[in-house]
Amino acid sequence: MSAVNTAPGTPPPPSTGSPSPASSGASAAPARRDAEATKTAILRAARHLLARHAHADITLKAVAERAGVSPPLVLKYFGNKDALFARVMSFEEDAAALLDAPVEELGRHMVRHVVAGQRERGADPVLRIVFAPLHGDHGDILRANFRTQVAEPLAARLGGPDARLRAELALATLIGLGVMFGIARGEELRAMSVEEIVDHYGPTVQAQLTP
């Protein structure tokens, strides 16, 4: 077996091979995941602040500090404060997941979605509507979005009389659960498992959906 002799202290020649496609793809995927995680953290921070401060008092710097990122990164992903809070004040994506079940199973699904969201992701799909009075004209936007993106699509799925009223009553029941779990932090409620809460509370919501 022959060997290549090099002088002591001489570094080996640099590799001339290019990275394999597999290794390039492996590095790109974590970058995409990191970007999504960063955007999620920024949105969560903005929601947190929106629930505690008036819209006019919230700065991008405060959002960035809460999310653990730099303000320029917030601008990179969302453009400006108005664009960021337009996302935060929209219920469209949350409503799609909240209503993603057959009507006859929707009460249990909605309860599970709210409680699991608060417990596992620190996010409630609809609870931010209760903070609308904090935000002046932006509160009107929040209310309008809630009506057109959550209440009206739910009402459209319900048959029978008084569909709009029943949709609002079902959502009121669901928001009450979110307030007790996430804001009042009821001890007995929070000691239950998600499925125990679903078993207790799902029929209460369902009673408005399919009377």
Rank of each mutant, 00 (worst) to 15 (best):
M1A: 09
S2T: 08
T6W: 00
T6V: 00
P8H: 04
G9F: 01
G9R: 01
P13C: 00
P13W: 00
S15G: 01
S15F: 01
S15H: 00
T16V: 00
S18H: 07
A22N: 03
A29H: 12
A29N: 08
A29K: 14
R33S: 14
R33I: 15
D34A: 14
A37N: 15
L43T: 15
A45C: 11
A45E: 05
A45H: 05
H48P: 00
R52V: 06
H53P: 00
A54C: 09
H55G: 03
A56N: 14
D57N: 14
I58E: 05
T59I: 01
K61V: 02
K61G: 02
A62K: 07
E65S: 12
R66Q: 11
S70D: 13
P71Q: 10
P72N: 08
L73A: 08
L73R: 13
L73D: 07
K76C: 01
Y77L: 03
Y77R: 01
A83V: 08
F85L: 07
A86C: 07
R87I: 04
V88P: 03
F91K: 09
F91C: 09
E93W: 02
E93F: 03
A96V: 15
L99Q: 10
D100T: 11
P102E: 14
G107Q: 12
H113F: 14
G122P: 05
A123V: 15
A123K: 08
D124V: 02
L127V: 11
L127G: 11
L134N: 11
L134A: 06
D137F: 11
H138G: 05
G139H: 04
G139P: 08
D140I: 11
I141S: 09
L142G: 06
N145F: 04
F146L: 08
V150S: 09
V150W: 02
A156L: 08
G159C: 09
P161F: 02
D162M: 12
A163E: 14
A163Q: 13
R164L: 15
E168P: 00
E168M: 13
E168N: 15
E168G: 15
A170S: 12
L174Y: 06
G176L: 11
M180Y: 07
R185W: 03
G186Q: 04
G186E: 13
E188L: 07
E188F: 09
R190E: 11
S193G: 14
V194M: 02
V198Y: 01
D199K: 12
H200R: 14
Y201Q: 07
P203V: 13
V205K: 01
V205D: 13
A207W: 09
L209A: 10
